[in-house]
Every structure is written in C-alpha cells, then in structure tokens.
Design a protein around this nucleic acid. Sequence first.
DNA 1: TATTGTTATACTCTATAACTATA
DNA 2: TATAGTTATAGAGTATAACAATA
Lengths: 146, 146
Amino acid sequence: MSSRDNLGLLLSLASAEGVARATQALRPLDLSVRSYTLLERVIDTGGMSQRALADDLRLDPSQIVALVDGLETRGLAERRPNPADRRQKAVAATARGKQTYRRAKVLVDASLDEVLGDLDPSERATLHEMLTRIVRRDPAAAEAAG
Amino acid sequence: MSSRDNLGLLLSLASAEGVARATQALRPLDLSVRSYTLLERVIDTGGMSQRALADDLRLDPSQIVALVDGLETRGLAERRPNPADRRQKAVAATARGKQTYRRAKVLVDASLDEVLGDLDPSERATLHEMLTRIVRRDPAAAEAAG
DNA sequence: TATTGTTATACTCTATAACTATA
DNA sequence: TATAGTTATAGAGTATAACAATA
C-alpha cells in the first residue's frame, strides 16, 4: 500500500475539501460551518441542551458556549431556561435564525454538490451509510480510545 | 433531510475520529499524524521537493517547512540539494526515519482498523474509490473554489 | 517575471483544567 | 457526588503576506 492509498489521509483530505467549500459558500451570510451545523441541529430538534449539542457535534461543551454566544449576539438563536432541570439551557433558533438557516442551506447544499459532483445518488447513499457506521460507533469504544 | 443526514458533517466527524485515533496511536513514537504522513510520502517516492509535498498534502509550503524542520531535527528526514534546480530541496527519509515509519505504520494501521472496523474489505475498497474521486478533482476546479 | 523555500503574524480550532450552580 | 454551563489558557492547525535566492 502506497501513501496514495492511505485511507485515513483520503478521509481527511475529503473532509477538508468539504469544510473549505462550505466555509466559502457561507461567507456571504457571515456564518461559520460550525455555527451553521449547530443552527441546523437545534432547528431540527426544536431545541437542545448544550450538553446534548456537544455530544452530537463531538465538541467540547466550552466550544458550544462560544458558538451559542455568537448566534445569540446576532439574534439567530437564544437560550431558554429548562424548568425541569435548572442547570440546563435549551438552545433554540429564533425566527430570524430559521430564515438565515434556510438561505444558508441552499448555499451549503450547492457547495456539497461540487465536492460530491462525481458521485451519483446511489453512490452518495452508500457513502452516507458507510460514514454513519464509522461515526455511530459504540460510545464506549470511543471513550476507551480517548 | 435532517441534520443527522448531513453528509458533510458525517465526513467531518469520520475524519476527526480517524485523526484522533491515529494521533493517539502515534503518541508512543512522538510523531504527529502530519509528520507521519509526510514521512510516508517521501519514503514512497524516494524524495520530493517541498513544493510537491505541499501540493500532495494540501498544505501551505510554510507548513511543510515546519514539518520538515521537526523531522530533520530528530534525524528522521533530511533536505538534499537538487543540482538540477538549486531553488529546490529534495526531502528524503534517513535510515532511522524509515525504521521509525515502519513501526509507526503498524500502529496507524491498527488504529484505522478500529475506525473502519464495521466495513469489510470490499466496502473499504468502495470507500477508498469514492474518496479518491472526491479528492482527485480537477485542480482548476479547486482553484476556482478558492 | 515567476517559483522555491523561508520567516512572521494573526486567526481559528482544539484540549485541558478549574469554577458555579444546580441535581 | 455528579452534571450543566462557564471561563481561562495554552497548544495545534490554518491562512496570509512578504522576502531572498534562483530560474
């Protein structure tokens, strides 16, 4: 196996390509890829605790704080108290946040099409399924790996 | 499409998982994933200019300088003059660098097996082929995308 | 003029630890 | 005791610009 066949490297390069293009696509809306992803997640779920966001996005809770701060300052998301557990704060998108997300999604999807341009729908489904299996591992295994 | 189906996010998470595990696997040898990748590349090619390395690894030339400096300080790689073009320096692995690489490869391959554990050889080949198509795009297209 | 390697700088991302308020 | 959110800090990684030597 030569270095050109390094699957880990290929994965890393493909990811970097996707992030770079999405970053560029989101520039007109002044949104980072991670803010966009967080916004998408809270819109789809109707609101999540910051801890749940950290778990889903595989980020440290302290990074979620910074991302939510940024979105809240711009009026795109807000923290709502959770009466059931006053330690938690439910992060939810504002109406303006949802509108911004819809516009952003069009741009991001187009940038992803550029990256995946050579893959037909069936291949994309296969890729999606395989990546899901890679990512959705037993959390205990990831824990053990540190 | 829900955020759980975000293919760009999945790609990013899978890559991060692979890099994290490889980083951990390489810790005993005090090698970064990028140093390992560079070492692999110069061993497989028998020596490359820093510019060629930057192109292959999708890194800025100034980052190659830092990586080669680190490997050279530790006696794992060296810069050799290129008589044909005195601007260039051919980066090559030393005997010790090759030995370190062989030990590192065992560890990295094992860590990759953990990440790809659910994929059989045929599926890995499919993944490899698709990622190759994503990464090996027309350089002009990547250029245009910034 | 253009390219290779280099230095410098700033910015983002990531990892870690410690603190507070709640449970 | 443990968990959710927060703050602070240091280290990687990344992007950009400028420069000297060479083509």
